[in-house]
Amino acid sequence: MASYDVNGTAVEHDEEGYITNLSDWSKDLAQVIADAENIQMTDEHWAVVNFLREYYDEYQIAPAVRVLIKAIKKSMGPDVGNNKYMYELFPYGPAKQACKIAGLPKPTGCV
């Protein structure tokens, strides 16, 4: 199985890059994944990642893109909770990329 190297520790991930053990997640690991995804993490990226982790803690599910954008819009407002903005942050899919960086499973309904 493939792995990310985080400060000398191997963190296993599946063939798509999602970590296999959710408890292995850390901010350092998120940065390693973001680098692999060619994402330059900003405060805006971290806000979405932290939102996703809180969402997962509450509902035990990684939301698909529509659900994610609707929930972010409700929580952070329409300037953040819209497709255009989210795809600017995570161009390969806000739900898929952001969940991967957040150390969550692949969202249901994502191909």
Rank of each mutant, 00 (worst) to 15 (best):
Asp24Val: 01
Ile72Glu: 13
Pro91Ala: 10
Ala30Asn: 02
Met86Asn: 05
Leu22Gly: 00
Pro63Met: 02
Gly103Met: 10
Cys99Thr: 06
Val48Ile: 14
Ala2Phe: 06
Asp24Arg: 07
Asp43Arg: 11
Ala71Val: 08
Gly109Phe: 08
Val67Thr: 15
Ser23Arg: 11
Lys70Trp: 02
Thr108Val: 11
Asn83Thr: 11
Cys99Ile: 06
Thr9Arg: 15
Asp14Tyr: 13
Val80Tyr: 04
Tyr55Glu: 08
Ala10Tyr: 09
Glu44His: 11
Met86Thr: 03
Asp28Ala: 07
Tyr55Ser: 02
Pro107Phe: 05
Glu88Ile: 10
Asp79Tyr: 05
Asn21Trp: 01
Phe51Gly: 04
Val67Ser: 11
Leu22Val: 08
Ile69Met: 13
Leu52Arg: 01
Phe90Thr: 08
Pro78Gln: 00
Ile101Pro: 04
Val48Arg: 00
Ala34His: 06
Glu16Ser: 13
Asp57Val: 09
Ile19Met: 06
Gly81Phe: 06
Ser26Phe: 03
Tyr55Ile: 04
Gln31His: 12
Leu29Asp: 00
Asn38His: 12
Tyr4Glu: 07
Glu37Tyr: 08
Asp79Gly: 08
Gln60Ala: 14
Lys106Tyr: 03
Asp57Arg: 10
Tyr55Thr: 08
Ala30Ser: 12
Val32Ser: 09
Gly81Val: 04
Tyr92Glu: 13
Asp14Arg: 12
Tyr55Phe: 15
Leu52Thr: 06
Val80Gln: 05
Glu88Ala: 13
Val6Leu: 06
Tyr92Phe: 13
Pro105Glu: 09
Lys74Ile: 06
Gln97His: 06
Lys73Asn: 15
Tyr4Met: 02
Asp14Ile: 11
Lys100His: 05
Val111Phe: 15
Gly81Asn: 09
Thr9Ser: 15
Ser23His: 13
Ala102Asp: 02
Leu89Val: 09
Pro105Ala: 12
Ser75Met: 10
Tyr59Gly: 01
Pro63Trp: 02
Phe90Arg: 09
Ala10Arg: 13
Ala62Asp: 00
Ala34Val: 03
Lys73Tyr: 07
Asp5Ala: 07
Gly103Thr: 10
Thr20Gly: 13
